[in-house]
Amino acid sequence: MAQKNSKENALLNVTPFMKNRIVAVLLLAPACIILFTVVAYPLLYNLIMSFQDINLLRPGGTPFIGLENYKVILSDPIFWRALSHTAVWVISIVGFEMFLGVSSAIILNQKLRFKGAFRGLMLIPWTIPGVVAAFTWRWMYDARFGILNHFLVETGILNEAVAWLGNYNTALAAVILPQIWKNFPFVMILTLAALQSIPVELYEGAKVDGATFWQQLRYITLPSIKPTLYLASLLTTIWSFNAFSMIWILTEGGPAHASEVLTTFVYKKSFQAFNFGQSTATAVIMFAILFVFVILYGKKIFGGGE
């Protein structure tokens, strides 16, 4: 290896510094090539459409109309409703997923019997195909045969069954719960892997000093996994912001927009109004919101990681 190295160096006549750069470029090249060839076109395709007057029901010309689509969307009260629902949806989902995911990871990293089995079981919601999960919840929520209503009425918490998905006041919460259930194991897996990489010596030293569990958690565990926590919250934010199928199968954003979020709004603009100019404009606005978030939040991650 060493011999080959010097030969390469001689051939290329580069300094080790330059060579490292070349290696870095080579390492990143495959990922860049795939992403920028496959991804650039779809993004530009949508960006361009957002400045055009595209209504599928009026085929023919698709003239450029500047920011008109954006103006229409921003003055649509349903857009603002969907935006505020999206904020509630994202914040509660990220919050609960982080809490459940991180605490279950910490518990499952302790000395427990049947740890492997527990880890596997906790992963179940994540492995169930989304379509099936959504239908299962739809059925659990059923106002007549649903197991949830049955429990709540039997235990006396409720006087009578509630149509959770058909009720103005409960629809949004009723779609949030399954989404949390479905994806919190992702945070758990991510955190568990980070916990497993903390050197055991750190804990051993702390134990010698008589540190309690909570002190170890506060001073060793959490600081060590901080970058992972940032990453987990970033990724769950992106995913929940763009989540679609759970809401669509459960309520389609209804009743009467009570659980409308931006993704269902975009879908309806595309395939009910067939106005792709407006739907892509909405998507670009969503993109911009997330992009700003990623830039601001990404800084934190870089800060924590390096």
Binding site: N20, R21, V23, A24, V25, L27, L28, A31, C32, L35, V39, P42, L43, N46, I238, N242, F244, L262, T263, V266, Y267, S270, S279, T280, A283, M286, F287, L290, F291, V294, I295, G298, F302
Partner: peptide, 29 residues
């Protein structure tokens, strides 16, 4: 490995750029 172990100017921006494709609703892609 490239991002974590090698210093390449602009690699942080590149990393953000990687995520760009995920910020767009899938139905439109």
């Amino acid at each position: 490995i490239g991002f974590s172990r090698y210093d390449l100017p602009g690699s942080e921006s590149l990393k953000v750029l990687f995520l760009v494709s995920q910020l767009f609703p899938l139905v439109l892609l």
